[in-house]
Structure formats: C-alpha cells, structure tokens
Design a protein around this nucleic acid. Structure first.
Lengths: 223, 223
DNA sequence: TCAACCCACTGTACGACGTACACGACCCGC
DNA sequence: GCGGGTCGTGTACGTCGTACAGTGGGTTGA
C-alpha cells in the first residue's frame, strides 16, 4: 500500500480521521464519506479505521459530536429569555452552517454527549423561564433545534459534486423550469421562483426564520 | 427465478413497485428499500426494475411524489389567512406522518411535480395575503414546509428494526441514561427526560409546533 | 399464417461498499 | 531481549447499484 510519504507517516488518530471526513463531506457530500475513501486519503488500509471506530456509524457519531462541540454557547446574561433564546439558536446555526452535508447527523445525537446536553439544558432553562412546563419545553425545544438543523440541511442539492459551475447551471435550469410553468395556474410560484431556487448564502433567510421561531415560541407561550 | 405464483404473475408496474417500496420503508426503514429486495418481493429479477425506473434515484423520486400526491389540500375559504395556513400545513402533516422514513425524500422534490406545485402556490398565496413580498414569502414558505417534514422525520430511530419491543427497550435505556446524569448540571434535561425520549405518537407535539409556526409567521409579518 | 417487431424481463458480470478474521510489525517497561 | 499492548495489513465475504447483451411472448402487418 502506498504511504502518504516515503518516510514515516504521522500516526493516525480519531481526530485526524474526523477532520478528514468533515473536509470530505464539505467538498463532496456525505455519500463521499466512505471508510475506504478515508483510509486512502490517510494512506492506510480500510481496516485501519476500525481500530479508531468500531464501525461506520460510530464514525458518524464522531462527526456529529465534532459539529456540536463547535457550538459557542453565549454566556447567560440578564437579557429577557427570548433575546437569549435567539442567541443560543443563532450560535447553533453558526456552528452547523458551514457543514450542511453533516447537519442531519446531529438530529438524533444531540443528547449523546456533553456539549449537546449543555445546549439542551440551556434551551430548556430559557423555555422554563418563558413559562413552559418541562414537558412542553421539551417538545418546543426539540422542535427548535430540529428546525435549525433543517434550515441548514434543506438548502443544498443532495450532494454537491465537484464543479460549482454545474451547481449554478442546475439552479438556472430549475429556475427556467419554474418560469415555463403555466402562469395562470402558478403565478406566485413563478414570481417567487428566484427566491425558491436561490442558494441560501445570505444571512437574510436564516435571520428571518430564526426570528420566526422565536416569535412562534412567544406566541404559544400561554397554553 | 421463483415466481410469486406458479401461474402467470400480474404484470409489474411503476405503481406496484412504489406501493411495495412504501410498505417496505414503513416496516423496515429506508435502508431496507433496495432494488434487489423490491425485485425479490415481486418475484422478479433486479434488472426488471430498470424498465420502470431509470435508476434508484428516480425510484425515490417516485416515492416522494407518491407522498406529496397524498396531500389533501383543503378548499380555499374566506377564513383569515392564518387559519387557512394552519389547515394547509396540517394537511401536509397528515399525509406525511404515516411514512416518517420517507418524509425526508420530499424535502427537495416538492417543486418537481404538479401536486407539490399546487401546495407551493397555495402557501405563497396565503403568505402574500399576510403581507409578505414574493421573495420573503418564498423564504418563509420554504421553511414552513421543511419544518413540517422535519417534525415527522426527526422523530423515530434511524431505521425501525423488526421488533417493536426492542424499540421500547431502546427508549427506556436512553431515558435511564438521562436520568443518571449529574442532577446539579442538567436538572432540566433530567426533568424533561420522558418528554425528550417519548415517541411522538400523540397529536400534542404536532399541534403545538404547527401553532408555533403559524404564530411565528404572524410575528414576523411586519418587516 | 407467419415473420417481424417491440415490450418486459432474464442472466451475467463489474466495481464499490461495510466489515469479520487472522496475521504481523512496532514500541514499551521489565 | 522479550512479552504484551497498540496499531495496522491482507484476504475474504456478502451486499449494493447497474452496464450490457440476450430472450420469450404478445401484437401486428402482409
């Protein structure tokens, strides 16, 4: 097997594997994250991965944990609960947004490790302060976090392939298809076409919808 | 190859394949939906599928379309926009909820066929009536639909395996893990444990969060 | 009536995937 | 110098999607 270099290769490690996997997922999508592919990129046999991870699923656990660890939870202040809630959700968004291909992995793994528990505790505390019972708070909090993840994950094409020229082209094609719909049946879809097809690289989309969530929480507070 | 019956087998069709795939996904999760497995269940060679679908992805397209077609859009009334929006979102939820394993497929395929376009048009119309510009309406509407899907898809374990006794056991284990956390660090996580771990089989969770979304839309309306 | 045709399906094969199992090589303290 | 962890190799198996080349049976035109 060809080594990465002729001299000694820097020892493999959990962290190095995870970092490589994250980079790979960012560049080519989650489907490109393969035991064999990662091994190859580290100049190593596929089976070498199994010393550091018991199986592929635990590798994905590692990726999710990596994302969740990156959340920089803002320090508690004496600002009102809704302002603080917005900050917490925004912090989560900021951490996850660079890795849309991995966002979905965090969906079911937030409560699996300490950093995620910290986030959950914080959200539940703010929701309790807002007047929710623990059960209601859990339901709302679960939904909030899931929504942030979806906000990020729902955006891109299933898996961004190599050339970003292609991606643009695909978007243009999609827009053209919308534009060619019968205008008497779908006037608003056509009018909104550019916004429906656009990639969410501005902050507007995220700001607006985080606001929507927080406003929603305020709205259902009394129940 | 063994036929499903000794006598002539009823001709294969797109619809039959999709129906089988939906049933399979409901029973054993999306991972069980395999070209080979479907072929076997129809008493047919794997390659026979490729007469009806160009590849697996177009089969998944078919599944998504099947779900979206099932949405029973309520007739327009002269009720206020927010009440109607709630009805539309609820209708979407009702159609998707029986098939959590397939919900995510609809995320990027709503605008691919006519029934989905109809839904989009309707949502955009209501949002326009609420005072949103087409662009803003598109951003909010996209998020609303994605949220409904997430509401359904985020719930179950990755893929429900065979015995539902196991599923209950897994839930109990997870709850026990939460309960054994240090109470001084995670008091609210522990208090909310049952609600965090519970399966969302009651309507409460969905009703509450649809309300949250509609209230959120009302909240961000003026911008 | 019979050859021609096409639809729906078969058969075989290939490369990629996750991973079980057995086997080294390296490095450490004793 | 040597025995036992730590880390990695080599080989193999079963499963996946699917390319490509056949093939049989129903319909059709002469």
């Amino acid at each position: 097997m060809a080594r990465k270099s002729d001299v000694t290769r820097p020892r493999l490690s959990r962290e190095a594997i995870v970092a490589g996997a994250v980079a790979l997922a960012d560049a080519e999508g989650l489907d490109a994250v393969t035991i064999r592919r990662l091994a190859q990129e580290h100049g190593v046999t596929p089976m070498a991965m199994y010393w550091h991870f018991s199986d592929k699923d635990s590798l994905l656990d590692g990726l999710a944990e990596h994302l969740i660890e990156a959340v920089k939870l803002p320090a508690p202040t004496d600002a009102p609960w809704d302002a603080q809630l917005r900050e917490v959700l925004a912090a989560f968004l900021v951490a996850v947004r660079p890795h849309p291909a991995l966002a979905n992995l965090t969906l079911r793994r937030i409560l699996a490790a300490e950093p995620g528990l910290e986030i959950a505790e914080r959200v539940l505390e703010l929701l309790q302060r807002a007047g929710f019972t623990p059960a209601r708070g859990a339901e709302v909090g679960t939904f909030l976090v899931c929504s942030i993840i979806t906000l990020v994950a729902a955006d891109p094409s299933p898996a961004p392939p190599r050339p970003e020229v292609d991606e643009d082209q695909a978007r243009r094609d999609k827009l053209a298809r919308l534009a060619s719909l019968p205008p008497e049946r779908y006037p608003r879809v056509i009018a909104a076409g550019p916004a429906l097809v656009a990639c969410r690289d501005g902050d507007d989309y995220f700001d607006l919808n985080i606001d929507l969530l927080v406003e929603g929480v305020r709205g259902v507070r009394r129940r």
